Simulated assay, not measured.
Amino acid sequence: MRIRATVAAVSGALAISAFALPAAHAAGSAPSYRTEAAKLFAAHGDRTAFSSTNGTAATDLGVSFSNLKIAKAIKVGPTGHVSTTVTYTLTHGANYDLTSDDFDSGPVIYKASSITNADLLGGVNPATCTATSSTTANCSGKIDINPADDLINSDAGKWSAGALALQYSTGNRSLQGNLGTTLVQRNSQLTVDASPEPVQKGKTITVTGKLSRANWEDGHYHGYAGQPVKLQFRKKGSSTYTTLKTITTSSTGTLKTTTKATVDGYFRYVFAGTATTPAVNATGDFVDVR
């Protein structure tokens, strides 16, 4: 599940063009993190001009965020749910009670250049914050991603990270970006098959395989064309692979090359990865040389 909003300029203001709501963070009459986060994401880009829950101008809470840590990369397959943990320090006024149902915080990521005009991804639930002083807390929350709902293929690449804080009773809130970066990547798969098996020493071995990556728009893996992939060999009894050559995937992501049989060992393909697609190694295929 996710928190997501696409914000766009409309007649001098900003409005949601797409939004899907995750489950509320508490039962009964407790404030809904998803609802208040939605209002924040839809708010005017000028943080001093937010509209509050009662229709009056909302103000920034004066909450700030620092020391944000997020994974270097988030690998997202074609289907399913992926989450990653984000930690950060929250600094607030001494009058805020972080244990109150009236106050919540959570991490967000966004691909736009500015968080005030961005498509935001967040967590199903607010972060858990532990006070370290009367005005600071260490927080840990999740970014939840469902590719079918949250992503299109062009979203792959670098995203920025930030955090938000909400006070439900007033509708006031804080939103801060540029606290870190991560790569949201289309997960990759790589296969290898060396044949014939067994093979006579000195004979030719044909090594085939395929490099694929997730397509978030149709929910399947498809071949990744035009990518350099290394063919490597590890002698039986050794723990070290040696690169034999580099070849390029076909228009359908397939790989095919030949090499000479010398000794027993394992062949594998290795892809170094790109900003949009993670590195991956095929599981070595053993060839018995006689």
Rank of each mutant, 00 (worst) to 15 (best):
K72G: 12
L14I: 02
I74P: 14
T53F: 02
A30W: 04
A15S: 15
V63Q: 05
G12V: 01
V76M: 13
A71D: 14
N67W: 01
A58I: 01
A42F: 00
F65E: 03
A24S: 15
A58S: 00
T89W: 09
T56N: 13
K72P: 08
K75R: 15
L14E: 05
L14P: 09
S52N: 05
T84A: 06
F50V: 05
I74K: 07
A8D: 03
K39Y: 03
R47W: 00
A26K: 10
T56I: 10
P31N: 08
H25D: 13
L40Y: 11
Y88R: 12
G55S: 05
G55M: 07
K69I: 10
L14S: 09
A42P: 06
S52V: 00
L61P: 09
G45R: 15
P78R: 00
G45F: 02
A71I: 13
T84W: 06
A26N: 02
A24R: 14
A42S: 05
F65I: 00
T59Y: 08
S83H: 01
A30N: 11
H25W: 13
T79R: 09
R47C: 02
H92E: 08
A23R: 06
G62P: 10
F41W: 12
T84K: 04
A37E: 03
T35V: 09
S11D: 07
V10N: 14
V10Y: 05
T91F: 06
H92Y: 06
A23M: 14
P78C: 13
S51Y: 00
A13S: 09
T87E: 06
A49C: 04
A57W: 14
T85Q: 11
T53L: 07
V10P: 05
V10G: 13
A18I: 13
A38C: 01
T48C: 12
A58G: 10
P31M: 06
F50M: 00
T85R: 13
H81G: 11
N54V: 13
A23S: 14
R34W: 01
A24P: 03
D60A: 04
L21C: 13
T87R: 03
D60N: 11
G77H: 12
K75T: 15
A57Y: 14
